[in-house]
Write a protein that binds this DNA or RNA. Structure first.
Lengths: 279, 279
DNA sequence: CGAATTGTTGATGACCCTCAAAAACAGTGG
DNA sequence: CCACTGTTTTTGAGGGTCATCAACAATTCG
């Protein structure tokens, strides 16, 4: 992948790129193109939110921008049961982990958002257990350098901690998802998922107040919520009718976050990590 | 306090149960017997099944038997939101990871069987994200020694690999569970779960052909299957009526494993690991 | 053996699915 | 710019799955 195609992709998925008005640290202007340096910033924000990174570690992450790839919307990024590929980070766009039953039923396990990693657990991660698909057009970069660096805890304690917390955050997502599917009504599930997406996107600066991009069809929502498309539609309508949310044109807005939180028993704080953790 | 009384507790004091402050004390008594040297063998079998262990590593695991604890059935082993404890291994009995909603609804994420670890991911593991409860009387041993040894990959490559695979196997469980809850009917879920339990118990030698212990009430099954107790009862009856399973007196038997596998789209091989994997 | 837990059964209705078709929308090419 | 096509959203109708409530039978256990 060359730089120009990445740049194009950036333009084509404007929604996924952070306006980033909040976080302009002195960006070491390396000899990389300015555009791509900004692009990986979302990874820096994500990992930096999970643990404190040294300047050297931040630089190491920034250097990832070299090896980017663009995946078309609806393409398979990582097929289950095939040779595992290395770790990658998502720069822009949404992906999802999922499994498909022989009869076509699909369950999406979780969304993967900008800044999130794919197969962080190592070469054999992800692929064997679930497929990863691009929900929108997707920009990723090779994250093996970071993963290997993080394996050396002495050298890169911050990165080690970050990746550890990233894996934990993903488990937190799965547990949330299990509660939704096992014990919540459609109405609660939808509210809960929207709150979770808002929280995650806020962590990487992709929200504007309570508005955030929701670039997925109702069919995808159905597959993550464990519902039929029709029922997702009706459930969202109910939430809109009650003035709790707005959803249109790939954008969502939480009109009454506290009400949503209460009715869906949403608990935040599971995803950020709070920078504590494992030795 | 025990978990089974949660329903009443919620009726009487609906609000006061949920907050983390009201977490029950952990009842556990210590044991230290010669007999337990044999007992930890189940851990050796489990870890040895996930990766090849050197004799030294096996010895290291066997030495765990020193520091055992017994947890009463229905007691809380690891409460969510509290100080994390160290890694432990289950010697006998069944436990489960779960979360309870403020209104009393409970979702069990997975069972923890003999040989399985608790909080293997490190001190902060498990506890923060889910509680662990003893389903039956439970015998555990401190696994910190093994966990720390495994952290040194050079010294103990087999153990490192084993624990890595154990964590992956647990993720596989969660993903299976997500498919069950999100996209399968009660009938499929029950069959799928029974197959999974059989496979897991077989890995540690606790099955006899297609018979295996199932020391749980239908209420617990309901909480893991995301169903009501009544519906679990009817679903099991249907499976019995169709001569696919037998369940009585804490024992289950799969009468037609292939039929069950087909009807529930069960895929094995996710849990064992096959001794391949991460560096 | 009585008390409590667990399992079983029936009745009723809510929730959610399926089928089917129309309406809104997005992209394409004339 | 507007028909044209395919996708996505929306609406309606009807039915199946599963929850809830309530009671009773069967077990387990002290």
């Amino acid at each position: 992948m060359d730089v120009s195609s990445r740049a194009e992709a950036c333009v084509e998925t404007p929604r996924s790129l952070a306006p980033a008005g909040a976080d302009p640290p002195m960006v070491a202007s390396r000899f990389r193109s300015r555009r791509s340096v900004q692009a990986v910033d979302v990874v820096v924000r994500r990992l930096g939110g999970l643990a404190s990174l040294s300047e050297r570690e931040v630089d190491l992450v920034r250097r990832l921008s070299g090896d980017g790839e663009v995946h078309a919307a609806n393409s398979v990024v990582l097929a289950a049961e095939t040779e595992p590929s290395g770790a990658r980070f998502i720069i822009s766009g949404w992906a999802c982990r999922y499994r498909i039953l022989p009869d076509g039923r699909r369950q999406v396990f979780c969304f993967l958002l900008p800044g999130d990693g794919i197969a962080l657990g190592g070469p054999r991660d992800a692929g064997a257990l679930a497929s990863v698909g691009a929900v929108t057009e997707l920009q990723t970069v090779d994250g093996e350098a970071v993963r290997r660096a993080a394996a050396n805890r002495k050298e890169h304690p911050g990165l080690a901690q970050s990746l550890y917390m990233a894996v934990r955050a993903e488990e937190a997502l799965l547990l949330n998802q299990l509660v939704r599917l096992g014990r919540q009504t459609a109405y609660e599930r939808a509210a809960h998922l929207l709150l979770e997406l808002h929280e995650r996107l806020a962590l990487v600066g992709l929200t504007q107040g309570y508005s955030f991009p929701l670039p997925v069809t109702q069919e995808v929502l159905a597959d993550i919520l464990g519902l039929s498309v029709v029922h997702v539609n009706r459930t969202l309508q109910q939430l809109k009718r009650e003035k709790l949310i707005e959803v249109r044109g790939g954008e969502a807005k939480l009109l009454a976050p506290q009400v949503l939180t209460a009715l869906s028993n949403y608990r935040s704080r599971d995803l950020a990590g709070g920078k504590g953790g494992e030795p």
